[in-house]
Amino acid sequence: MVPLNYYLLLSGVLFAIGIYGLISQRNGIRILMCLEILLNSANLNLVAFSSYHGNSTGQVFALFSIAIAAAEAAIGFAILIALFRVRDTIDLHNINILRW
C-alpha cells in the first residue's frame, strides 16, 4: 500500500503547480485548467485521507467536489465566452478596466 505521505506530497505538488499556473498564465483557458488542478489536488487529499481513516466520508466529499468542479468549470467557460464576445480576447492581463 502506498503510504499516505506520498499522496499528500503529490497533492501538494499539484496544488503548487495549480497556483504557479494561475499566477503565471495569461490565457483564460489555462487559468481554468489550473483551477481544476487545484481542486483535484484537494480531492486527492480527501480520497487519500478517506482510505487512511477507513471511513467513506472523504470519498463522498470528493464525489461532491468533483461534481461541483464540473459545474464550476461550466460557469467559468460561460463567463470566458461572454468575455470573448465583448472584449475579443481572453488574455486576462488585458482585462483590467476595473482597477484602483
Partner: peptide
Amino acid sequence: IRRIQTGVVQHYAAWVV
C-alpha cells in the same frame, strides 16, 4: 495604496497566495 489594485486578476491571485 490603491495602486495595489492593478486590475489584473493574476496579481490578485498572487496576493491571495
